[in-house]
């Protein structure tokens, strides 16, 4: 995972007071509102880059619109005729813009990013992390949600059986049905977690509006828990799909 930006010195667009390097007038954050020249990047978090508050319910249509509008200003194509220094800034600004847009447009990535800004190190439960641990022979620490423990244990045995059968070219409809049922239940579980996360977003945004730090920390920890469970369940569903798909 790419490291997050520095948490200090957040500058909101509009608070910027410096002047344009080219024409000397007051400028907007990323480009000069008077002469249009790209400005040196200022270290801000992804939300601030777009001038958004650090809230989790985000109008993605507005985000896309802003992304396109800023792209028209900051993309290196737009400063192909400019001098070397401005082209350099344009490259940096535009990569920052793309990184920010990619992170914020996806609600899960957005949540993970915000939690990292809040100082939480999320567990890496991606497929990549799992495979990486497997390949390097490390044991990956993975906290199994207790209520899922039994279900998961059973499912793993069934998947092992399925793989063994597949190798022998056999087919057991009863086993398939069992696994299918387990998968359905996992998917329901996943949907429920997502719904929980969504209600957290709204609670978070309210806590931000009310500047309620205690409430904010409570929701933060809850979101970490929900995200970890969701990742866990999602990985299981993926394992099931892989085992089913690779059948002869």
């Amino acid at each position: 995972m790419a490291s997050t930006e520095s948490k200090s010195s957040l500058i909101m667009p509009g608070e910027e007071t410096s002047t344009c390097w080219s024409c000397g007038t007051m400028r907007a954050v990323h480009f000069c509102s008077a002469c249009g020249k790209v400005q040196p990047p200022v270290p801000v978090d992804y939300f601030a880059f777009f001038g958004f508050p650090k809230k989790l319910n985000l109008d993605t249509a507005a985000l896309q619109k802003e992304f396109y509008a800023l792209s028209r200003r900051l993309h290196p194509d737009m400063s192909a005729q400019a001098d070397g220094q401005e082209r350099e800034w344009s490259l940096e600004q535009s990569s920052l813009l793309n990184d920010a847009y990619r992170t914020l447009k996806d609600p899960i990535k957005r949540t993970q990013y915000l939690l990292r800004l809040e100082g939480v190190e999320l567990e890496e439960q991606s497929k990549q992390a799992t495979d990486k641990a497997r390949a390097s022979g490390e044991l990956k620490k993975q906290v199994v949600p207790p209520d899922l423990l039994e279900e998961m244990f059973e499912l793993n045995i069934q998947l092992e059986e399925l793989r063994a059968q597949k190798n022998l070219g056999e087919d057991d409809p009863a086993l398939l049905e069992e696994i299918g049922k387990a998968k359905l239940s996992l998917e329901q579980n996943h949907d429920a977690l997502l719904a929980e996360l969504k209600s957290d977003w709204s609670r978070w945004d309210k806590a931000i509006d009310k500047v309620d730090d205690q409430e904010r920390l409570k929701i933060r920890d809850h979101m970490v828990d929900v995200l970890n469970r969701r990742n866990y369940v999602r990985n299981l569903v993926r394992d099931v799909n892989e085992a089913m798909e690779s059948r002869p």
């Binding site: 790419a2 940096e92 793309n98 990184d99 990619r102 990486k132 390949a135």
Partner: peptide, 20 residues
């Protein structure tokens, strides 16, 4: 362990960056 740690995923809009 000779493992690849992906820092910029495919289909990311370029320019794109990652800091390690």
């Amino acid at each position: 362990g000779g493992v690849t740690d992906k820092i910029i995923l495919r289909n990311s809009t370029v320019p794109a960056s990652a800091t390690q």
